[in-house]
């Protein structure tokens, strides 16, 4: 008990690696820049993580069900552009439900392909990443989208407003996380998601309609994307049509960082929220210590690799494998 063997240390590193690495980052950043842990900065990080976070909530369902969703970034661009365009055409009160309906249709289409036609989710959503991007560009004619009368609309409330001193994006993120957290942990549907991801065949043999569960996961993911698009559009009341580009990887990184297995069957909403925050704080910390913004792209990749490695390491109980 008194001394730990090398194997024990390996096991602890493998199990708690992400938290240890996170702690090291936090301490490092705080030493490098005392502003890092200031309330303003912390609030700022959470606020800027909200859009990513909302998307990660939906993707958590998809990943636990044993699939991937790489289309969320370009789908978010689509939602943002659509709602901004419709805002001036039919007014915000109609634009929002119309945008949600269109985004949910995209989610349902993916869900149909992956769930009912049993196509590989990587291929389907990678293809949709490109297809939806094309759809957005076609819709917008390649133009960026801006609300003409920025002063005279209440549409900004979702991205810029605040209640009780807390920014609305954070409130939306927290509320949606709570809601979906309960759906996943407490409802029969949530249980089925875990079963389908854990062992789809056994779930089918237990009478669970696997295709429907997968379908619904993609619809939920699309709902989260639409919400993220709403916040994004509302925040700046105008947008480039590539606003969500690359976010799919950040989202996936956050979900995996939280500890959801890419093989499906494990993960929680709470852990995803933690993953989102870890990613947000690390990216923020890198800026504060004076690194260029573009370094983030590389760092995000490193974090994904680290997370996937530690996930596998935790399963085999050690960092290295004896079997090549």
């Amino acid at each position: 008990m008194a001394s730990m063997s090398k194997a024990d240390i390996g096991r602890i590193l493998a199990r708690q690696g992400i938290l240890i690495a996170f702690a090291v980052f936090i301490i490092g950043f705080t030493l490098a820049n005392e502003r890092f842990l200031s309330p303003d900065n912390v609030m700022g990080v959470i606020r800027s993580s909200a859009i990513l976070g909302v998307m990660a909530l939906g993707v958590t369902f998809v990943v636990i069900s044993g699939n991937l969703d790489l289309s969320v970034g370009s789908m978010m661009s689509f939602s943002t552009i659509v709602v901004l365009d419709l805002h001036d055409k039919i007014g915000p009160a109609l634009a929002i439900p119309a945008m949600f309906a269109m985004t949910l249709c995209l989610g349902a289409f993916i869900g149909f392909l992956v769930g009912y036609l049993k196509l590989n989710s990587l291929i389907v959503t990678l293809g949709m990443l490109s297809a939806i991007h094309g759809l957005t560009l076609t819709y917008s004619g390649g133009q960026n989208m801006d609300i003409v009368d920025k002063e005279g609309t209440w549409f900004g409330v979702f991205g810029q407003g605040s209640a009780l001193g807390i920014p609305v994006p954070i409130l939306i993120f927290v509320a949606l996380a709570a809601l979906l957290g309960i759906v996943l942990a407490k409802t029969p549907f949530g249980r089925k998601v875990y079963a389908v991801g854990g062992n789809g065949t056994a779930a089918t043999f237990s009478g669970i309609k696997r295709a429907r569960v997968v379908f619904l996961c993609y619809v939920m993911s699309a709902f989260c994307v639409a919400t993220a698009g709403l916040i994004q559009a509302s925040r700046s009341l105008g947008s480039q049509n590539t606003v969500g580009q690359g976010l799919e990887l950040d989202v996936l990184a956050a979900v995996i960082l939280g500890g959801a297995s890419l093989l499906g069957g494990s993960g929680t909403i709470f852990k995803t929220v933690i993953g989102v925050l870890i990613l947000g704080f690390i990216q923020n910390g890198l800026l504060l210590v004076g690194l260029q913004f573009y370094v983030q792209f590389v760092v995000t990749w490193v974090i994904i690799i680290l997370a996937v490695w530690l996930d596998i390491a935790a399963k085999r109980g050690k960092l290295w494998s004896n079997i090549a």
Partner: peptide, 9 residues
Amino acid sequence: KGQGLVLGM
């Protein structure tokens, strides 16, 4: 294991 149970549950 393949059809009867979700082993991780």
